[in-house]
Design a protein around this nucleic acid. Structure first.
Lengths: 62, 62
DNA sequence: TCCTTTTGTAAAGTGTCCTTTACATATGGG
DNA sequence: CCCATATGTAAAGGACACTTTACAAAAGGA
């Protein structure tokens, strides 16, 4: 499952730490997601979509 | 996180076993999801959206 | 150069997602 | 009544999602 987290975070000009805080997860989680180490849980996917103002389908591609 | 899986499955007239097969998961997983025991993984959420022809956001509400 | 910020790796621990197996109960058709 | 179908519970095990802590390395500004 690919995602556009890193790209969207760059557009916002946020650091990984800032995104982690916005998502209420650890920085390690942001790193792992961006590097495709694993997929987020569904609740976290919703949070990611919310902070970037896009749909889950727009950010994640199976 | 609430979901409309049971309702959508009823509309299709599918048994839990039939849905499980369509999703390529066990029947136990379908039961657990419908009864809100836990949320699906993101890949499974995509599969559920696909078999019902709706968006993830339409099926799951945080 | 020095210091701060940012990004990355590693490891160990906890809880969740999903599996298989087994058994129980309800319902409807023959 | 008998049997098949549908739904549910329980329990044990494996893999994944997420955490905390610690350390390493690159990059930019003063």
């Amino acid at each position: 499952m690919n995602n556009r987290i890193k790209e969207l975070r760059a557009e916002k000009g946020w650091s990984q730490a800032a995104l982690a805080e916005a998502l209420e997860v650890s920085r390690q989680t942001v790193i792992a997601l961006e590097r495709g180490k694993y997929d987020p849980s569904l609740p976290l996917a919703f949070a990611i979509a919310r902070v970037f103002g896009q749909s889950i389908e727009d950010i994640f591609q199976p």
